[in-house]
Nucleic acid binder design. Structure first.
Length: 416
DNA sequence: CAGGTC
DNA sequence: CCTGG
C-alpha cells in the first residue's frame, strides 16, 4: 500500500443551490464517501481516489492515483465528477417547479437546498442497496467498506486530518486529532464477487443473509446476462422495463430496484418507497387516510404514483429532498422543529360491577391482562377481580373492574 | 427496531 | 431471516 500521487486541486463552478456536498454525500445514496478532513470528502473510484471540497461558488476536486500517471495521460477527473453529480441537470429550476406544485415541498426545501441525485455505477449501486435491506445506515456503510477492502483493488492511502468540529482554530489546541493514513479501495468488480468463497467470506464478515444475495446476484449478472447488461438498462430500457429486469436478481425487491433505477440508471421518476417515504406519504400527504396497514405491492405502487402525479417526471429527485429532510441525521436542520417523544396514556374504566353469589374453590385470579397491538399503540385490557369471602372461605361477592388503557408512543416532529 | 426480501 | 447500534 503506497501513499498516492495526488493531482493539484481544480474546480468547477457549482452553486450551493445546485449541490450541497455535505448533504448529498451523507443522505444514503452512496455509502462509500468518507470525511477525510474538515469539509472534505473522499471516495475510491475504479482507478483513483477522488477528494472533494466545496465553496459557495465552486466544487473543488482532486484525484490521487496509486502510481504516477503516464506523462501523456490527461486527467479526466473533471469528466468523472460532472457525470457522477449529474451536473448537466439544473436542480434549482426543478426546485422551483416542485415548490409551485406542492406547498409542503416548498416549506421543507428551504433548509435542504442542493439535494440532487448522484449518477452512480449501476453495479455498485445494486450491491450497495442489497446490503441496505432491513438494515441501518451505519451498518450498511461498514458492510460496503468491508466488501471493498476484501474484494476491491487497493488504491493507496490518503491523509485524513481532523474532522472534529470542536477543534478550535488556535494551533495550541489540545483536542486536535493527529492525521492518519487511510486506505482506499475500488468497488469490487462483478467477477470478483463470483468466486466460490464469497458467500462464506461475507457471512464471516457479518453480512448475515445478504451474503447469499450478493453472491447469487453476482453470478446471475456475470453468467446469465450479456456483458455490460446493467449499463444497457440506462439507455435501452425505460423505467418499467429496467425495474422488471432488476427484481429478477436475488435480494432485489421493488424498493431496492427503484433505488438502482433512480440513483444509477437515469430513471428520474423512480420513487423508492421505504419506511421513511411511507411515513411522509401518510403523515404529510394523508395518503390512504390511515386505511392501509402495511406496504403491500399495490400500496407501494400507489404511493409512487401519488408522488409522480404531484411532482411530475422527476418525482424521484423531489422525493429525495423530503426523504433527506426526514432523516435523523438532518432533522435538527428544520427550525422550530422539535423531536418529542410523547407517551400518552388514556385510561378508560369501562365495565364495573358484577356481583356473584356463588361458591368457588379455585385459586383467586387477581389480575388478567390482555394486550392488543394496534398500529403504534397498545391497548391493554386489565381485568381485576376482587372477591369478598365469608368466614369459611366461600365467595360471597365478586367485583370485576375492567380498565382499558391506551398507550401511544409516537415520535413527532412539529413546527412551532 | 433498522431505508426489505425470500 | 443475520446482526448490532
Amino acid at each position: 500500500m503506497s501513499k498516492g500521487h495526488a493531482t493539484a486541486w481544480a474546480q468547477l463552478p457549482v452553486s450551493l443551490n445546485q449541490l450541497c456536498l455535505a448533504t448529498v454525500l451523507r443522505c444514503g445514496q452512496s455509502f462509500r464517501w468518507k470525511a477525510s478532513g474538515p469539509d472534505e470528502w473522499s471516495c475510491g473510484f475504479s482507478d483513483r481516489i477522488i477528494s472533494l471540497r466545496q465553496s459557495p461558488t465552486h466544487l473543488h476536486y482532486r484525484a490521487t492515483f496509486p502510481s504516477p500517471p503516464p506523462k501523456s495521460a490527461k486527467d479526466d477527473t473533471a469528466e468523472i465528477v460532472k457525470d457522477y453529480f449529474n451536473l448537466s441537470i439544473d436542480l434549482a429550476a426543478l426546485y422551483e417547479k416542485w415548490s409551485l406544485a406542492d406547498p409542503n415541498f416548498k416549506k421543507k426545501a428551504g433548509e435542504f437546498k442542493g439535494v440532487r441525485m448522484l449518477r452512480q455505477d449501476p453495479w455498485e449501486c445494486l450491491i450497495g442497496f442489497i446490503c441496505s435491506s432491513n438494515n441501518n445506515i451505519s451498518r450498511i456503510g461498514q458492510m460496503v467498506d468491508k466488501l471493498c477492502a476484501t474484494y476491491g483493488t487497493p488504491l493507496g492511502t490518503i491523509t485524513h486530518t481532523s474532522t472534529n468540529p470542536l477543534s478550535p482554530s488556535s494551533p495550541s489546541s489540545e483536542n486536535k486529532t493527529p492525521p492518519t493514513e487511510v486506505a482506499y479501495y475500488s468497488f469490487p468488480t462483478i467477477e470478483a464477487l463470483t468466486t466460490p468463497d464469497v458467500e462464506e467470506t461475507l457471512k464471516k464478515l457479518g453480512f448475515g443473509y445478504r451474503a447469499k444475495y450478493i453472491y447469487k446476484t453476482a453470478c446471475m449478472v456475470h453468467k446469465d446476462r450479456p456483458k455490460g447488461f446493467l449499463n444497457t438498462l440506462r439507455d435501452e430500457k425505460d423505467y418499467k422495463e429496467a425495474h422488471a429486469e432488476l427484481i429478477q436478481f436475488m435480494g432485489v425487491g421493488p424498493k431496492v430496484a427503484d433505488c438502482v433505477c433512480l440513483m444509477s440508471l437515469d430513471k428520474m421518476g423512480a420513487v423508492p418507497v421505504d419506511t421513511h417515504v411511507w411515513q411522509i406519504a401518510t403523515r404529510d400527504y394523508k395518503f390512504g387516510k390511515g386505511k392501509h396497514r402495511s406496504l403491500t405491492p399495490v400500496v407501494y405502487e400507489a404511493v409512487g404514483d401519488l408522488f409522480r402525479e404531484l411532482w411530475g417526471d422527476a418525482a424521484g429527485w423531489a422525493h429525495s429532498v423530503l426523504f433527506t429532510a426526514d432523516l435523523r441525521t438532518f432533522s435538527d436542520r428544520l427550525e422550530n422543529t422539535k423531536t418529542t417523544t410523547t407517551t400518552t396514556v388514556k385510561s378508560k374504566t369501562k365495565v364495573k360491577v358484577e356481583v356473584k353469589e356463588e361458591e368457588e374453590d379455585e385459586k383467586i385470579k387477581l389480575e388478567d391482562v390482555k394486550v392488543e397491538e394496534v398500529e403504534g399503540e397498545e391497548v391493554k385490557t386489565i381485568e381485576k377481580r376482587v372477591r369478598k369471602r365469608g368466614a369459611n372461605g366461600e365467595v360471597k361477592a365478586e367485583v370485576v373492574v375492567k380498565t382499558e388503557e391506551v398507550t401511544e408512543r409516537r415520535t413527532r416532529r412539529r413546527r412551532g
